[in-house]
Write a protein that binds this DNA or RNA. Structure first.
Lengths: 353, 353
DNA sequence: TTTAAATGCTTAAACGATAAAGCAAGGGAG
DNA sequence: CTCCCTTGCTTTATCGTTTAAGCATTTAAA
């Protein structure tokens, strides 16, 4: 209630008030048995009265621990994945961090200064004790260096090229195969188009491969093509240009994410085609958009928040035991049937192999 | 490239390599004129070679500056405003912080420990040099204390009860009046319903008042009612229960945000009513959803990212000059005409008084 | 030639917290 | 009565950085 820009209260202030040394106050507040109960009592009262809060800088310097973790968003990610994905991730990270009274630092810039990326500086300066890296591009040298540097790092997503790094993800390939088979088997689609995400991201590569596996599994009966998109709504629409759909062309489209599916949906409408009647479409992610469109987009729900939560927990473990061997967690995804594939809207169904 | 969990490189290491004292290294790296050019050269080379990055904790302790700002999300906000709002805010804050090489700390928990909220601890511990507070509930004592504590704080939104705090916002009242008049004047609607947000938030109060002013300005010709919602999609739908629309009842609904407008849109459809033909509706925010629905929702676009960006800049200024008088910035909002009000879809139009 | 000032570093102190080691007083065992 | 162990605090050193003050040495000014 003091008001004013009061000078910060330190251990020394509390110590003077009680009539002991700062060291005694420190021990009292940390519950050392070497301090008498009565002194401890008086120290705690004085600390509360003065509004003492330990200096995080001093504590960090002394303990060599900042008590913060960094959530790193490579500049590529920021534009490739949408806001929604990142928001789910942040929610998961925050909740895990709150449980540990850890701070969350969001580091988005990757501008190189003197050869070090911004987040490598964050790590080396010990501003954070460890880092979570949201899905980076394949072959991102900065991430590779960070992962190889020995600093505690957990990657979100799949990184076949970085087998020594801890990561948390889900099986994009299987999920994509399943959702494609849903169109083939459950809806009898035979002429399929796949619109990929940017192919410098593992996610896009895996989802494409899943599509192709499903197509191959059904032999000659399937006509299939692949077009490259970039996860943006516009690219979903553009992918449909110059291609024919409906009875004359493709009867089903597997989009690598919901944004592109929405773009595709609008493009179809402009062509005078209806979904699912003329063309069945499915998306991927289920971050919110696919539920709000008309028709609702059938999609694969990915547990982004849980992903982040688990990744944060793995990171905390890694910070405690830096010598531990790398971990890998695989999460379950689920198929959400909405109208765009031809299903009546219904509840979530688990995807299993 | 070193690999391994190498012990951190400190000033001392650089100093030993060059053959001077740590103080000399510090001065050399900070470009002090008291250090000879040749020594400075050798110091910089050694620092680069060893990969020296200053310890943020030591620097913070010495300089009494952490170089970070906190983005505080009161637990009320988190559930009241959606993900989208927050994401725009985070983007704006990040970009402003990146320009200053400042770290961004996201603090969501408000769990009280020993009478201090989590974010008050963050501030008092000097983990951050200042804080940005996303729209808090009216009369949130914690925020009031924080704002009155003398610590650098900038509020996002409108806080008539905290005139001494710096804040950045836009005029919800005028905007709401304008969008309501759009229904009255441009579309000839005469029986209007307003669905508010949670009334413990200033935003909701202001948007309601704007609606009422527009109604009052058009005298007896208007039939109007107000129902309280909570900004959620469900509450938007629920607000329509037991009320009649179309020729028999209300012909226009002003929702205090887009999520509720979307909920209302679905509820109308379930009642067999069409928008805009039977009932014209308008929303508020334009964070993305309103563009994806069918019909698109006419809404007020609010510059959330710019809001955050400017707030961050004000905060940095406040950190530099804590004694400066409180600032207030008002941003422009714009009307985005889509189909739900009866307009043909068209471009953004600026709202002006 | 003497004095003053610039040059280029080193020494010392401080930021605030904490852990280890130190030390006085009291109590119990032998 | 001595010795040792508790008890309960104090002293001291440390984390890594920065800045003020100190001190030789050289250069410029008078």
């Amino acid at each position: 209630m003091a008001g004013r820009a009061t000078r910060n209260v330190t251990l020394r202030d509390v110590a003077e008030r009680v009539g002991v040394t700062p060291a005694a106050v420190s021990m009292a507040l940390s519950g050392s048995p070497r301090i008498s109960a009565s002194t401890a009592e008086r120290v705690k009262a004085a600390a509360a009265e003065l509004g003492y809060v330990p200096s995080s800088a001093a504590k960090a310097l002394r303990s060599q621990r900042s008590g913060a973790i960094a959530l790193i968003v490579p500049n590529s990610t920021q534009h490739v994945f949408g806001h929604s994905y990142f928001m789910h991730v942040l929610t998961g990270v925050s909740s895990a961090a709150n449980e540990r009274d850890a701070q969350v630092l969001v580091s988005t810039s990757a501008s190189e200064a003197s050869g070090l990326t911004a987040y490598e500086r964050v790590m080396r300066s010990r501003t954070a004790d460890g880092a979570l890296v949201t899905s980076a591009a394949i072959g991102d040298r900065n991430i590779e260096r960070l992962a190889a540097s020995g600093l505690p790092v957990v990657l979100l997503g799949n990184y076949p090229d970085l087998p020594d790094a801890s990561s948390v993800g889900w099986d994009d390939l299987s999920a994509s195969r399943m959702v494609t088979e849903h169109l083939i088997v459950d809806h009898g689609k035979r002429r399929l188009l796949h619109v990929t995400g940017p192919l410098d991201h593992q996610t896009s590569v895996d989802r494409r491969e899943g599509f192709l596996q499903a197509v191959r599994a059904h032999g000659q009966e399937i006509d299939a093509a692949v077009v490259e998109g970039d996860f943006s709504e516009d690219s979903g629409a553009a992918a449909l240009d110059g291609t024919s759909f409906g009875d004359a062309g493709y009867d089903g489209i597997v989009f690598a994410n919901d944004d592109m599916a929405f773009g595709g949906l609008q493009a179809l409408r402009r062509k005078g085609l209806r979904s699912p009647e003329d063309v069945a479409i499915v998306g991927f992610d289920d971050f919110g958009l696919s539920r709000t469109t008309d028709p609702g987009i059938t999609t694969v729900h990915v547990p982004a928040e849980e992903l982040a939560r688990i990744a944060a927990e793995r990171l905390f473990a890694l910070i405690e035991h830096p010598q531990g061997s790398p971990t890998r967690d695989d999460l379950e995804v689920s198929l959400v049937r909405r109208e765009s594939c031809g299903c009546p809207r219904q509840d979530v169904v688990l995807l299993r192999d």
